[in-house]
Design a protein around this nucleic acid. Sequence first.
DNA 1: CGATAGCTTGATTTCGTTCAAGAGAAGTGG
DNA 2: CCACTTCTCTTGAACGAAATCAAGCTATCG
Lengths: 352, 352
Amino acid sequence: MRSILIIDDHDEIRENIAEILDLAGYKTFTAENGKKGVEAAIKQKPDLIVCDVMMPELDGYGVLHLLKKNSLTENIPFIFLTAKTERSDFRKGMGMGADDYITKPFEDTELLDAIEMRLKKYDILHSQYPSNEKGATEMIDDLRKSGLFKMEMDNYESMEYQKKTSLYSEGKRPKFLFYLKSGKVKSFRLHQDGKEYITNLYSVGDFIGYMPILENKSYEDTAEAIEKSEIVIIPREEFTDLVFNDMTIATKFIKLVSQNVKEKEQRLLELAYGSLRKRVARALSDIYSKFNSSGEKSTAIDISREDIAQYVGTATESLIRTLSDFKTEKIIEIKDGKIHINNIEKLTNLPY
Amino acid sequence: MRSILIIDDHDEIRENIAEILDLAGYKTFTAENGKKGVEAAIKQKPDLIVCDVMMPELDGYGVLHLLKKNSLTENIPFIFLTAKTERSDFRKGMGMGADDYITKPFEDTELLDAIEMRLKKYDILHSQYPSNEKGATEMIDDLRKSGLFKMEMDNYESMEYQKKTSLYSEGKRPKFLFYLKSGKVKSFRLHQDGKEYITNLYSVGDFIGYMPILENKSYEDTAEAIEKSEIVIIPREEFTDLVFNDMTIATKFIKLVSQNVKEKEQRLLELAYGSLRKRVARALSDIYSKFNSSGEKSTAIDISREDIAQYVGTATESLIRTLSDFKTEKIIEIKDGKIHINNIEKLTNLPY
DNA sequence: CGATAGCTTGATTTCGTTCAAGAGAAGTGG
DNA sequence: CCACTTCTCTTGAACGAAATCAAGCTATCG
C-alpha cells in the first residue's frame, strides 16, 4: 500500500484530502506545518508528498528545499497545493524540483489523477536499470508499456533486414530510432585500412541509434544486421519529444550516457594494457551476457569469429588461437563451430 | 537588434505588446491568428515568439506544435500568454516545449524580464561548444558569468594543490565539483598491474569531476595535479540544482556527454588498430590543443614523458623512441626536454 | 655536492600480426 | 542432386612491433 504525506496548515483542507486519499486506498500521514512535515517525511518516508505553499513559518518552498537536500527524501514525488496560481510561484516551485502543481479549489479526481500519474512515473524511473546498453533499452521499453511513452510499436513499420544489410551508416543524418524485434545487430567504426571495430552489440528488445539523435549529429558509426532481423522504425521526433520534454527522463538519459562513457573508458584501459587472453575472455562474457540475457536454454555464442575478433580489436587468427587455448584449458567448448562457455568464473578471473 | 513575433487575436492586446517591445528596443512582427503566426515565424525567423493560447482556429498549442516540427523554428524561445492560468493548460504548454508562461493581466516589466531572460539563456545555450572536454567547461563558465548559474567562484574555497596530490580517487563518493583556476590535472584509471591509463587532461578553466556527480555514482577514476594548481571547490548541490532543474541545460549535458562517448569510441578504434606512431602523433596534438588553447606564445608541451605515454597507452621507452623518430623527421623539436611542434599538419596526417 | 627523479639509448624477448594453405560448411546454379 | 564456387574456420611458420630489462646520462632539489 502506498503512503502519502499531506502537509497543510488548514485543518479542514488537510483532513479533507486525507479522507479522499484514504478512500482511494492510500495510507495517509498528515502534518499541520512545514517543520513537522519535514520531520514526518524523513521519519515515514512516504511514497509521495502533497504540500501547501502558503504556510506560516516554514512555507512549501522551504519544505521542498529541505527535502531535496536530504538523500533520504530527495526522490520522493512532490506535489504543491496553491490557492491562487501566481505565475512566478509556480515557476519557482517547478524550478526547485516539484513534480506537479495543483490549484485550489480542485476536483477530487484531479488530485487523484495527478498522484497516480506521479507514482507511476516514479516507479518506472526509479527502478534500477543496469549500466550497459541494455539499460536504456529497458527503460524506454518500460516507459512505452506504461503508456507514458506515446510510441506504439504497432503504429510503425516493421522491416525485415537480411544479414549484412545496414540500418544506417557513417555520415548520414539520423531520421529514425530503431527497435530490434528479433535478430542481432552490430555497430562499428571503420579504421583507415578498412578494419572494423565493433563498438556495440544489440539483441532482441534493444533500441539502436539513440545517441546521435540525442546529440543531433550525424552518425559516426555504422549499424548492420549480423543475422536476419526484424526491426521497427520509429521517427526521431517521437523519441526526442519524450526525452527533451520531461526532466525525469532527461535526467535518466544523462546518467545512462555517462555510464556509457565509463564503460568505454574501461574498455580503453583493457585495450591499452590487457593481454589478448584477458580481452578475449572479457569479450566472450560480454557477448554471452548480451545475447543470452534471459534464461534461454542454449549457452552457445552464435556470432562469427570475425565479429568477435573485431569486438576484441584483434586479428581473426589471433582470436581463434586464443579460443583454441581456452578449449584445451577446458574453459570453453566448441560444437558445430559454436562456442559454449563451461566455466564463467574461470573466464572472468583469468590469472594472466 | 532582436526581433520578436507577437501572435494574438485581440488587436488591442497585440498592438499594446508590440508598442511596449518597440519602446524596449526590439523589432516586432505581429500576427492576428495562429496560421499567420506560423507563417510569419518561418518567414521572419524571429529571435523570440510571444503567443496567446486561446485563439480561434489554430490555438497556441497548435502553433507551438507546428513550430517544434520545423527545424527552422524549433529552437526559437516561445512564451505563452494566457488569461486564466488553468493548471493543466500550463503543464501542457511546458510539456510541449514552451519556455515560459505569462498570465494576463501582466506588468510590462514582467513581460520584458521574461523576454530578456529567455534571450540571454538562448544565447548561451545555442552557441556552439566544441565537442571535447572543453565544451562542458566553456558552457558552465558562460552560464556562470551570465548570472543564470548561481555559482560564484569567489564564494567558495580556493585550494592550492601541490604536484602529485590527488583531488579525488577511485571508489570515493563525489562531494564536490572542481574548477581549475591554474595548473594542470590528469584523471586516470588503474590497471591491475598498477599501470595508469589517462582518460582526461584538464587545464586552466576546466571543470573536473562532473560526470560521477551527474550519474550519482562513485568515482571510477582518480584525478591528480600534474603541477602546482589552484582549484576551486564547489559543493555538488550547486551543480546538480542547476542541471537537473533546467531542461535546456540538461539537454545540453546529454549532448555533451554523448559527444564524450563518441570521443572515447574514436580513441578505442585507434588504440585497437592504429600504429604507435599515429597514436603518439594524435596524443601530441590532443595535448597541445588542450594545454595551449588560447594564443599563448609558447608552443611547448610541458608534461612528463611518462604522462604522455600513459595517455597514449604505451610504455615510456616506446614513447620516447617515437619522439626521437619525429625529431629526426623534423616534425617536432626538443629544447630543454620540452617538446615543440614544428609541423602540425604533418603530425596529424602521418602516412603510416 | 650528493642523491634522486626523469630522460634516453641499446639489447633482448615476447606477444600478436601477417602470410600461406588446407579443411569444412554453406550457398549456387545447371 | 551434385559439382562448383565461396566463405568461414583453423593451424603452421615467419616476421615485426613494442614491451621489458639494463644501463648511462642529465637535470633538479634538498
